[in-house]
Nucleic acid binder design. Structure first.
Lengths: 356, 356
DNA sequence: TGGCGCATCCAAAGCGGTTTGGGGTCGATT
DNA sequence: AATCGACCCCAAACCGCTTTGGATGCGCCA
C-alpha cells in the first residue's frame, strides 16, 4: 500500500513510455521504434516523438529495458579480497577508470563485486544466472587460473587483463609484453656494466611476475650469468616489501649493484633502503622499475625519477573494456588477444656500474 | 530470430520461477512466497520448494526482480574525471573496496560511473530517472558542493564521503575530523619546539583541505604564531607535488624545520626532496603526514615510517555504505552523520626541533 | 449444523519496456 | 477496376518476477 502511495504521488517517478505515447496520440510501439531508430516510422513522426521525449525529459526505464531485451547492459569486475593478505591492488583504480570511460561512452554500466576470494566462483555463477551482467573482466590472473575454465563453462563472455600460463583453452586477453620489457631492462643494465642485478618481483603465482622473471632470466642467460636466488625476491608490491627486500640484499657480502623492480611503489621502498644505507640511487645503485603510469604516481615530469618500463594501465583498461564490449556484441566471433609493448624510459635512477 | 535460437537452445539460461513451480506442481505465487519467507505458506511446502530450488540451482532473475519491485538493488558511485588534471584519486580503491564489502554482504550491486566532470549532473539525473540505482555515494566534496542541492532536488538518497562547507541543506555524511587531526599534529610539532611548520595541503577547493588548514591555523594561533603563506602550499596529492613543494620551501632563506603533509604519497615526495638536499627526515626535518591506511601503502610495520594522523579510508567506505543502505531502507528517517576521529601515530619522521 | 476464521494456495494483474504479427492507406501496376 | 507493395502504425504477447484479491478446505464453536 505504501507502494500505491509512492506511485500515486509519483509526479517524480518520471514519464514512461505509455504516458508519452498517449500524450502524442501514438501507440507505445511506434514511440519505442521512433526513439530506437527503427525504419518503419515516418521521419516527421520520429521528429515529433524525439522532440516530445526531450521536452518531457523522458528516459526509458533501464530495468524494463533489461528485462525486455534480456541484456544486462552492464559488465562486471570481480575484485577478490584475499582473505590472507588484504591488499587492494593499487592499479585497480586506474584500470577501472580507463575501463569506465569506455563503458560510459557506450552506455554500459560497470558493476563491481568485492568478494572474499573463496567466494569468487560463486560470484561468477551468480552474475551469470541472475543475469546481472553481459560479461566480465578477469583481474590479476594466476598460473593455471581456474576462472578461465569456469567462465568458459558457464558461458559468460570475458576478457582477462593479463594471461594465464598453463591454460590450454582459448580465451580473450589483453596483456603487456612483460617478458620482453624485463628482458630489455635487464639488457640495459648489463650494457651499463652491471653484473649483479637483483630482481624484486611481485608474487610469483601471479602470471605477470612469472613472465617478468622469464625475461630477466633470458637476458642473464644470454650473457652466461647464472641466476642467484639470494638476489631474487618475490612479494607483494608494497612500499614495505620493496624496502625490506632491498635492505636485505644490500646488507649481504656481495650486494647487487642494480635492481629490477616490479612497481613504482616498491621502488620507492627500495630507494628508502638505499638511502638509509648512505648510498645514492642512480649513482651507487641503479634501479629500474615497471611504471604503470598511475595518475597519482607519475614517474617525474620532464625527467623521470626512475628508469622504467612503462605501460599505461589506464589505457589497458580502456582497451580491455572495448574488447569485451566487442565480444558481447559479436558472440559468434572467436577470442581476441592484444599484446601491448612497454616503453623503456631512461630516467635518473640508472648509471654505469661502479668500477669494482 | 537469433533470439529465438538462443532461448531455444537455452538449457543454459537457467531455471525460472515458472518452470520450477510447474516442476513442483505449485503456482509461481507460492514458490515466490516460499523462497522469500512469507508466512502464508506451509512449512513443509517451503522446505520442499527450497530443496527443489537448490537442487535445480534456481536463482531468481535480477532484472525481473528489479522491474517488479521497483528497486534497483544497486548503489552508484560517480567518479568524475577532471578534464583538467586527470587524477584518479588513489584513495578510491580502498574506499571502494570497503564499500563493496558492505554491498556484497547485503546483496546490493555497486555500479561505478566514470564520467567527465562536466557531465556529472547529467549522470546523477540519469541514474535516478532511468532507475539504475537506489542511492549514491558522493565523493570528494568541495566547498559549496552543487551536488548536494542537486541530489536533494531529484530525490536520490545519498551519503557524502566528507562534508561540504557552506551547504545549508541537511544531508548525510561520514567524515574524518580533519580539523582536529591537523590541529593535534601541529600542536605535537609545536611541543617538539618547532616554530616554522610548513603545510603541504591538498587542493583547497576540496573540503577536507580547508578543514585541515583550519586545524593547522588554530594550533598556530593558539601559540601566537602568524601564518606564513610562503610555507603553505596547496596542490594535488601526488609524489611530484609533494617533492616540488618541499624542495621550494627548503631552498628558501628561512626553511621550515617541520612539514605537515596531506598524504603519504606526497610525503614520499617530500622525503625525496629532503634527502636530495642532504638532510635526514626525522632528524633535521620533521614530517607528519595524514595516513589513509591504504593497504598497498602501509606506513611501516611495527615502527611507522611517518608520524601520522591515521584513519582508515577502507573502514570509512564500509561505514558510508552502511549508512546509505540504511537510508535506502528507511526513507522516512532523517539524515545521518558520522564523524570519525583520526589517531596520532608517532613514527620515525619527527624529532625535536634542531637548536637554532 | 451453519458459519466463522485460519491456513494454504492460486489466477491474474501489474512493473515498463521490446517485438511479433498483422491491418489500413494509398499510389502504382496490369 | 482489381491487385500489389510500400509505408505507417497498432494491438497484444512477452520478459520473469511480485503482489493483490480472492478461492478452497478444514477445524471448531455456538
Amino acid at each position: 500500500m505504501s507502494f500505491k502511495f509512492e506511485t500515486g504521488l509519483g509526479a517524480k517517478h518520471g514519464m514512461n513510455l505509455k504516458e508519452l505515447a498517449s500524450k502524442l496520440g501514438l501507440s507505445p510501439t511506434t514511440v519505442s521504434r521512433a526513439l530506437n531508430g527503427y525504419p518503419e516510422v515516418n521521419e516527421t513522426t520520429r521528429e515529433r516523438v524525439m522532440a516530445a521525449a526531450k521536452r518531457h525529459n523522458y528516459r526509458p526505464n533501464t530495468r524494463a529495458i533489461r528485462l525486455a531485451t534480456g541484456r544486462a547492459m552492464a559488465v562486471g569486475h570481480v575484485i577478490p579480497i584475499a582473505t590472507r593478505h588484504e591488499i587492494v591492488n593499487p592499479v585497480f583504480a586506474d584500470f577501472i577508470a580507463g575501463a569506465g570511460e569506455t563503458y560510459s561512452r557506450n552506455d554500459y554500466d560497470m558493476v563491481l563485486s568485492v568478494v572474499p576470494d573463496d567466494q569468487e566462483e560463486d560470484t561468477y555463477r551468480g552474475l551469470k544466472s541472475k543475469g546481472n551482467v553481459d560479461g566480465v573482466i578477469v583481474h590479476a590472473p594466476r598460473m593455471n587460473d581456474a576462472r578461465i575454465g569456469l567462465l568458459h563453462e558457464i558461458g559468460l563472455p570475458f576478457v582477462v587483463h593479463g594471461r594465464a600460463t598453463g591454460t590450454t583453452l582459448p580465451y580473450s586477453w589483453l596483456d603487456v609484453n612483460n617478458r620482453r620489457a624485463f628482458r630489455r631492462a635487464t639488457e640495459f643494465l648489463l650494457d651499463l656494466g652491471h653484473r649483479r642485478i637483483a630482481l624484486v618481483n611481485g608474487l610469483e603465482f601471479m602470471d605477470f611476475a612469472i613472465r617478468r622473471r622469464a625475461g630477466y632470466g633470458e637476458a642473464l642467460a644470454a650473457r652466461d650469468i647464472a641466476l642467484d636466488p639470494t638476489i631474487m625476491s618475490s612479494d607483494e608490491m608494497t612500499e614495505i616489501a620493496g624496502y625490506k627486500a632491498a635492505r636485505r640484499m644490500l646488507a649481504s657480502a656481495t650486494p647487487p649493484t642494480a635492481f629490477l623492480c616490479a612497481s613504482m611503489i616498491s621502488g620507492m621502498g627500495m630507494r628508502r633502503a638505499i638511502e638509509e644505507r648512505g648510498l645514492a640511487m642512480g649513482r651507487d645503485i641503479s634501479v629500474i622499475i615497471h611504471d604503470d603510469d598511475l595518475s597519482y604516481m607519475k614517474n617525474g615530469e620532464d625527467l623521470p625519477i626512475f628508469t622504467a618500463t612503462r605501460s599505461s594501465v589506464r589505457e589497458a583498461g580502456r582497451q580491455a573494456a572495448e574488447m569485451l564490449l566487442d565480444l558481447i556484441a559479436h558472440p559468434g566471433a572467436g577470442p581476441q588477444q592484444r599484446l601491448l609493448e612497454a616503453e623503456l624510459i631512461i630516467g635518473q635512477s640508472t648509471a654505469p656500474a661502479p668500477k669494482a
